[in-house]
Amino acid sequence: MSGHSKWATIKHKKGALDAKRGKIFTRLIKEITIAARTGGGDPDGNPRLRSAILAAKAENMPADNIKRAVQRGTGEIPGLQYEEISFEGYGPGGVAIIVDATTDNRNRAVSEIRHSFSKHGGNLGEPNSVRFMFSKKGVIAVSKDVADEDTLMGIVLEAGGEDLNDEGDTWEILTEPNSYEAVAQAVRDAKIETVMSEITMVASTYTKLEGAVAAQMLRLLDALDDNDDVQNVYSNLDIDAKQLEEVAG
């Protein structure tokens, strides 16, 4: 696999193989609640909330669920108080990992995430030990079956996108975070279906793993993904798509 955002592609191919809708909804509700708490309940004036609501709608979350999550965030109705924590560390083979958690119990989250790293051949690092390798970007992936390069390049140039990468069976549009919504809307307006569309962390360099070490790394990612406190996991893992499917399957 090649290109700047290969982990975004890996993550979503992996997610397509073992998606758990309940977990997706839980994460989205937490994100909406935090966004409303920190920036207010009006999505027009709160870009983080606006993005979270769009992501929830893309997963077909009922409107009532979205409304209640916003109201919990603004304090209109009671709910758990969440705290955001970020972890950095290394997985098997030296793969850099960032874990974002949203939890109502900090001690539990720290203990469980530390345990996952140590159990699966990784170790937690100090703050900023790996974050310098990543930058926040909008990533919009489109199957090559539904759009050609010229069409997407036109959207990138007109809507303010940054780059268009060939990722094998998909095209991936990269944007700066402040341009993401405009580019994503341009893709929707063109009636182009996306494989993924989100603001994520994109690594500047990648670590290629194979064989048993790659399998161990995927087990670590699974353990982190299965943690109810974990919102997002970012990595600079590069792995052959065939092995990814074999291990995930």
Rank of each mutant, 00 (worst) to 15 (best):
N165I: 01
I32W: 15
G93W: 06
N107F: 08
N227S: 09
D189N: 11
S204Q: 11
Y234I: 07
R50E: 02
W171Q: 09
E126M: 10
E158P: 08
L157G: 00
N60E: 07
N178P: 00
F117R: 09
P127Y: 04
A184P: 09
I97T: 12
V156P: 03
K13H: 03
V139P: 03
L54S: 10
N165K: 00
L157N: 03
P177W: 15
K23Y: 01
G22V: 15
R72L: 10
P127G: 11
A241T: 03
N178A: 11
R48N: 14
D222L: 10
E193C: 02
I192G: 04
D18N: 08
P78C: 09
I239C: 04
Y82R: 12
M61R: 10
R108H: 04
G94W: 02
S111K: 10
S2A: 15
S51N: 03
D18L: 13
N46M: 10
L244C: 10
G211K: 07
R188G: 05
A101S: 14
M196C: 04
E167D: 03
G154I: 11
V183Q: 06
T200N: 05
V95W: 03
I155H: 06
I53E: 00
T38G: 13
M61P: 01
I85L: 15
D150Q: 07
A215G: 06
T200E: 12
Y90I: 09
A203C: 15
T151A: 03
K137A: 01
D18E: 14
K30E: 14
V95F: 00
F134H: 04
G93D: 10
T194Q: 08
A159V: 02
F25D: 05
E112V: 07
P92Q: 08
A19E: 14
A182G: 06
I32P: 15
K57P: 13
R219S: 05
P92W: 06
A52D: 02
R188V: 06
Q231G: 03
Y234P: 12
V156E: 00
G154F: 13
A16I: 11
A190T: 00
E83Y: 05
T9V: 09
L80P: 14
P78T: 04
E112D: 10
I155N: 02
A52W: 06
P62E: 08
N123E: 15
S235Y: 06
V233F: 02
